[in-house]
Structure formats: structure tokens, C-alpha cells
């Protein structure tokens, strides 16, 4: 099979090194694609795959990058976010990687993207049915912190034996009066597998349920891929007397006045001054451009 060299690295006196479209060789892409198909067929189940070393460190999004590289085509428009922001350094680095190796169009606008790779957030703008959301996953096993052994957790998933997880959540309630898990909050997918949604704040969990977009999860170091097809029931684990609740922010975004969105706390000085602003930078910028102004914001025409 002929690889199409589309990028190269000069080696001075050494011969050039060329790479395939989207970096991965075709055999590796096929292997990842097969894993993605099985992941979709068994929602929430972690499919083992032979993750490759990528030219970025494990733990920095290699799983997401491999999934994105395997699905990406020349017609795609790619958005990459980290902490909800397009301009965080790792998002910039990953976007640059695909611009270089796949020459793919990129965007920061959620609505324009066909593939969105994310770390730690789901965009505020509702996703649509033509979009693929690719999550970077550090630890795919929701039971890992209760039972570190893969040999054990695999059994628990096979038997759908999730009592351990409920016990842990309930112990939190007994000790703290709250479920002390605030991110990577476990979900049950399509009534069968308990799944780690990656370290998104639990604020984002409800967005996974009945989502029109396809959600793919890639864990490179741990060599697992899993998926949630569109319009799939995703339920955050909870108890009748302690129903699942998301964080609530007291004030709207200080820049765009949005409410009902996830906010970052920004420390302004060393005297306790702080403000809360949208973690989703595209959402915030769009609202500001539409004329929404928060208490510390500037009207759009003044800023321009």
C-alpha cells in the first residue's frame, strides 16, 4: 500500500524522514478503526488497542490524537480544546500537529467543526449529529481507584458487578455529606457498562446523555478506546436519597454574562480579588461579539 508522504523533516546530511497522512501508517489506522467500530457496537466497553508511540508524550493526549488521526479525512474541520479553551498550549500543539501532518482545516468555532478533540470539557454550544467529539483519556478504567488490577476490573465489567463503585460513592456521602467526586464522575452507558467520562467536571456529564454527536474516547498509554453512539442513554451514578447534581455558579460570567455554563476562577491580585469567566473560550467570545457584556467585560465595539 502506497503511503503518501506529505510532510518531512530535514535531516541535514541525513536523508529526509517522511510521514503518512495524519502521521499514522495505514496499518495502524486500520487497527484503530477496527477498535472504534467495536467500541461503537458495545457502548461504554473499553476495547484494548495496540496504541502506538506518538511524537508527543503519553498523558498529553496520545489516545485522542490516535483516534482523531484514524477518523480524520481531508474534508474535516478540526477543533482542539484543552480546559475548554482553544488557545491553551497543549491544544495549540495538537492542532498544529494535525495542520502539519494532515493539512486539515481547523477552527475555533464549535458549530463549524466536524471533529472536536477535547481534554477536560464538553463545549457549551450543543453538538450536532454531524460531529465527532474525541476525548483524551488518562485513566479509562472507572474502577481503577477502587481496584488497581486490570485482571480484577475486567472480571467486574464482565459480570456487570458495580457494587464496589456504589459503595465508594456512598462512603463519600457518609464521610463528607457529599459525593466527593467532582470530575471524572462515573456514568452508566446504555444500561450496561459503567464508564469513566474522562476528567470532565461532572457539570458536563448531562451533556453526554442523548447527545446527537458521536463521542469517542482514546486512552493511549492505557491502550483503550471506547465510545458512546449518538442518542444513547448516559446516566450519572447516584442514589435515590442523593440524586446527581451539578455544580452551580453564584454569578454569571464576568466577561459575557452567561449563566448555566462552567466558569473558571481567575485570580486578579493578591488581595483576594477574583472573577469567574467562561471556561469555553469560543462560547464566551461569540457571546461577547453578539453584544453580551459581563460586569468586567468591554462592549464589543469598544474592544475592536
Amino acid at each position: 500500500m502506497s503511503a503518501q508522504p506529505i510532510s518531512s523533516m530535514p535531516r541535514s546530511s541525513m536523508p529526509d524522514i517522511t510521514y503518512n497522512f495524519a502521521y499514522l501508517d495505514e496499518q495502524t489506522k486500520r487497527m484503530i478503526r477496527r477498535a472504534i467500530l467495536k467500541a461503537i457496537a458495545v457502548p461504554g466497553y473499553q476495547v484494548p488497542f495496540a496504541a502506538r508511540e506518538m511524537p508527543m508524550p503519553y498523558g498529553w493526549g496520545t489516545g485522542g490524537v490516535q483516534v482523531t488521526a484514524a477518523v480524520l479525512g481531508p474534508q474535516d474541520v478540526l477543533k482542539v480544546i484543552d480546559q475548554g479553551a482553544d488557545d491553551t498550549t497543549n491544544a495549540v500543539a495538537i492542532r498544529g500537529f494535525f495542520e502539519k501532518t494532515a493539512r486539515v482545516a481547523t477552527t475555533t468555532a464549535t458549530a463549524e467543526a466536524t471533529v472536536i478533540q477535547t481534554r477536560h470539557r464538553i463545549p457549551e454550544t450543543a453538538l450536532n449529529e454531524n460531529q465527532i467529539l474525541v476525548y483524551q483519556v488518562p485513566i479509562p478504567e472507572p474502577l481503577r481507584f477502587l481496584e488497581p488490577r486490570e485482571t480484577e476490573t475486567r472480571q467486574l465489567h464482565a459480570l456487570a458487578e458495580y457494587g464496589l463503585m456504589h459503595v465508594k460513592l456512598y462512603e463519600d456521602i457518609a464521610r463528607h455529606g457529599h459525593i466527593a467526586t467532582t470530575y471524572a464522575y462515573p456514568v452508566e452507558v446504555a444500561g450496561r457498562y459503567v464508564m469513566d467520562p474522562s476528567p470532565i467536571p461532572k457539570f458536563d456529564n448531562p451533556k453526554m446523555d442523548d447527545c446527537p454527536a458521536l463521542q469517542l474516547f482514546g486512552a493511549g498509554r492505557e491502550k483503550r478506546i471506547y465510545a458512546i453512539p449518538p442518542h444513547t442513554r448516559v446516566r450519572s451514578l447516584d442514589f435515590e436519597d442523593h440524586p446527581f447534581k451539578v455544580q452551580h455558579f453564584a454569578k454569571p460570567c464576568a466577561l459575557c454574562a452567561a449563566t448555566g455554563v462552567y466558569l473558571d476562577e481567575v485570580i486578579l491580585d493578591d488581595k483576594g480579588g477574583r472573577m469567574f469567566v467562561c471556561s469555553d473560550t469560543d462560547y464566551c467570545n461569540t457571546r461577547q461579539a453578539q453584544g453580551h457584556v459581563g460586569e468586567l467585560g468591554v462592549p464589543a465595539e469598544d474592544a475592536a
Partner: peptide
């Protein structure tokens, strides 16, 4: 692949 992926996803 993309056609097969969306076919199984929907």
C-alpha cells in the same frame, strides 16, 4: 471507514 463508522453509530 467513515461510512462504516457512522453506519454502526446510527
Amino acid at each position: 471507514f467513515r461510512a462504516a463508522m457512522w453506519a454502526l453509530a446510527r
